[in-house]
């Protein structure tokens, strides 16, 4: 169950439109390291997560990422309102425009549609957490690349907020990994995972 609140996690109040910048920032909506992928990744992986700490963390960070998706949508929306024809033609948003107008469509900066192939869910809690830590770093990197193109403080402010969240999330996933590795080290039997390649189910290391 989810509850929607009619407010943003962090305010977006952009005075000046900038379609060129909008096109770049859109990648954090539906690109390979974007907020949609982040949310789907964690909310899907949580079903097979181990330890109370890690389950709660995936659930809650997956939820926060949905709020970040909304912030990115708001930024792109506000950057593309009331565009003139000249602005549109000069901005590089023209190719996007003929497919989507100024609607918000989950795609990367080059226009490639979002795909679930951006994410994994392996059923192995430690493997998933390694992916999640990498994902947070990749999202931080993307925000930093985007920041090179921003000279408007109204846009920089929420982007900076989102970047710092990636650092916090990375930290939390790292803590979860320690709990999970500790738990997996107790050599409990995993009903769905047998890491021993030996088919005889003994303790040998044979293939």
């Amino acid at each position: 169950m989810w509850i929607y609140e009619k407010k943003l996690e962090y305010p977006v109040k952009i005075k000046h439109t900038n379609p060129t910048l909008a096109k770049l920032i859109l990648t954090q909506y539906g690109g390979p390291d974007g907020e949609l992928g982040a949310s789907l990744r964690y909310l899907s992986q949580r079903f097979s997560m181990l330890t109370p700490e890690a389950k709660a963390t995936l659930n809650d960070i997956g939820t926060e990422e949905l709020a970040h998706l909304e912030i990115i949508g708001a930024i792109v929306h506000q950057l593309t309102r009331d565009l003139t024809e000249e602005q549109l033609k000069a901005s590089g948003l023209d190719a996007y425009y003929v497919d989507h107008g100024v609607g918000i469509y989950p795609a990367n900066a080059a226009g490639t549609p979002f795909t679930a192939a951006y994410i994994q869910s392996t059923g192995n809690p430690a493997v998933d957490l390694y992916e999640d830590m990498a994902a947070e770093e990749k999202a931080r990197k993307t925000y930093e690349y985007i920041m090179k193109f921003i000279d408007d403080p109204d846009v920089m402010d929420p982007i900076r907020f989102l970047r710092t969240r990636e650092i916090v999330h990375f930290q939390r996933f790292g803590e979860c990994l320690m709990y999970v590795q500790d738990e997996m080290g107790k050599k409990k039997v995993f009903p769905i995972e047998n890491n021993n390649p030996c088919k005889k189910n003994c303790n040998c290391e044979e293939n």
């Binding site: 943003l8 305010p11 809650d60 960070i61 926060e64 916090v168 803590e175």
Partner: peptide
Amino acid sequence: LLEELTQLDFAAVDLALYLNTHP
């Protein structure tokens, strides 16, 4: 009022994430 609520809610979100791994 919106700003105050946004800040308080954010503090709660961040603290809750911290508490998940420092219960």
